[in-house]
Nucleic acid binder design. Structure first.
Lengths: 333, 333
DNA sequence: CTGAAAGCGCTAACAC
DNA sequence: GTGTTAGCGCTTTCAG
């Protein structure tokens, strides 16, 4: 492997000149620059990442802490990851995947100076990783909202606003008995913050609009979805609208409604909270509030990068939801 | 951040002693070792990854080249990733995610000495990354089989064997007209190697067993699955068994069969090729041949690690398929 | 606009 | 069983 000294020699300049050509941190005359660039190309030179990190305290690597096991939803995870990967690439950053549940992986990566910043997904309420993140010299961005955000930057969809928009949309169509199918009971028991925010937003708006709202969990399986549909229909007789925040259960819930002879949106309006492509690609395109996975991923990277260059205080960014009307919601009969 | 010299000073030993305590590359007396370990703990010392990489030519990082966009199936991808992440952890390795389609990312990561080895998923036939992998000083392991495997280690499920086992299982149950629903047409057009191998294995066995076999692609959507079912039924009248190698279409294909009044396995036996949990968690547990995503991921890491320590020649490993009989296949009536 | 040279923190000979 | 020290390849003052 060619080193920077080889390049300098080949170009007839000093190593520092080569370094500055590469970094652009000081002006270089056109002829010098092109000689250096030619030498770089000729030798197929690539800077050694470790040496660079040692000398500059910058790795150009971003840690991504991702839950590979108890993922809320693989699809959504992939959207986040994809948004993060793209944005990182755009900033000339690589992504180091950290999947260990405990903090040891994070600790090594952070304190071993392997990365310049961290993005953490699916943080739990009393996550052992939070203190490690807080003490790190690198900026950290969480996707989601932990209980105590002090000193940590967070980005997430504004789920309270998701809840209220959903209820408002249906109330404006004249619906007065609305059901909500949420994520699996595991998420309810963990008291996941997005769920609480969604419910709070929906309930507040339901009160304001004077409509009835019933919310229950819903497992991701075919059977679970059918049970949830049956159960909410029993619990809320005369229900005419359903909000479903559960991508995996969505098709099964709809199938169950059909089985029960309910037409959509004739008998029951359905509003999905899910990634836009999922809603649009159902047999009946669904009115939906997007879960903008890629956008959140991008925002997380941008926040991290910002904090690297400047050093801003921590900030929480909640993305406003977007409701797209398609064919599954309509006026109550 | 404490350095190795700080630790040495605190423990009253030389830096090399600290280094050797850490690496275990030479014997250290018990008392010295414990003094060093105490100093490490007291100072919260973590070795600087860049410095270590520079001095030792080892990063303890593994590149994982993953397709985030045109993924065959997000679920299967996640299984691979999860197997790889676990195995890497086990070998004290971290994972660097490379998602760029072209070779620039790979090139930087490999020639910039950011990683000790690469694992590449979803390689295409004339992939621009293949030459980069072949020229790299680091060992490379591909998941899947490219056209020309010279100099590259590969690991994959033995799809030919999957095809023949599936047909044999059904033939032994007395079925003589068998259909096969494969992946979406995109994969057929790319002439993906796993598909060709699956078909070749299935056809050879069908010949041998003197049974009829018809194979068609199947899109992942609900509509696509229904069309594929209708089409294969039309194409192969009297068909009594169906092999489905398409996780996303699976539930929809089954639903369509039901709609058509076909009972499973009474009228039609269904054999799925998919991850074990998917098969087991359907409403009717499906007889299936596993796609052992995690095992393949682990095998890939093991092969890479082996090639780091020793330097073995390239090797292709095809994992034998496992057929698990559940409730969706039975004797022909 | 360009060069010289002092480290960055660690590993691995080479000494003893 | 332990210490000394020369690099690893790069960035960045400090000089000119």
């Amino acid at each position: 492997m060619a080193t920077i000294d080889d390049v300098a020699k080949a170009a007839g300049v000093s190593t520092s000149t080569v370094s500055y050509v590469l970094s652009g941190k000081r002006p270089i005359s056109a002829p010098t620059r092109s000689r250096v660039e030619k030498a770089i190309k000729d030798l197929g030179y690539r800077p050694h990442a470790g040496a660079r990190a040692l000398a500059s305290n910058r790795t150009n690597v971003l840690a991504l802490v991702a839950p590979l096991r108890a993922a809320v939803n693989v699809n959504v995870i992939m959207l986040f990851v994809s948004g993060i990967a793209q944005a990182a690439q755009h900033h000339n950053y690589d992504v180091l995947l950290v999947t260990q549940d405990d903090a040891t992986g994070l600790d090594r990566v952070l304190n071993g100076s392997m990365v310049d910043a961290v993005i953490t997904m699916d943080v739990e309420e009393h996550d052992p990783r939070i203190p490690v993140l807080r003490n790190a010299k690198q900026p950290a961005v969480l996707i989601g909202l932990p209980r105590d955000t002090a000193g940590l930057s967070c980005v997430d969809l504004d789920f309270a606003s998701v809840g209220s928009s959903a209820v408002r949309h249906l109330a404006e169509l004249g619906h007065t008995k609305i059901g909500l199918l949420g994520s699996g009971s595991a998420a309810w028991e963990r008291r996941t913050s997005f769920l609480e925010r969604l419910l709070q937003g929906a309930r507040t708006e339901a009160n304001y609009q004077s409509v009835e709202l019933a919310a229950i969990p819903c497992e991701a399986s075919e059977v679970g979805a059918a049970e949830a549909v049956d159960s909410i229909l029993a619990q809320q007789p005369g229900l005419t609208a359903l909000i479903v925040h559960n991508e995996s259960a969505l098709p099964h819930a709809i199938a169950r409604l059909r089985e029960l002879g309910k037409s959509i949106p004739g008998d029951i309006s359905v509003l999905a909270v899910c990634p836009p492509d999922v809603a649009a690609n159902q047999p009946l395109p669904l009115t939906s509030i997007d879960i903008p996975g890629e956008a959140i991923g991008r925002a997380a990277v941008d926040m991290a990068m910002n904090r690297l260059d400047n050093d801003l205080p921590a900030e929480t960014r909640l993305l406003a939801p977007v409701l797209t009307q398609r064919e599954s919601t309509g006026p109550v009969r």
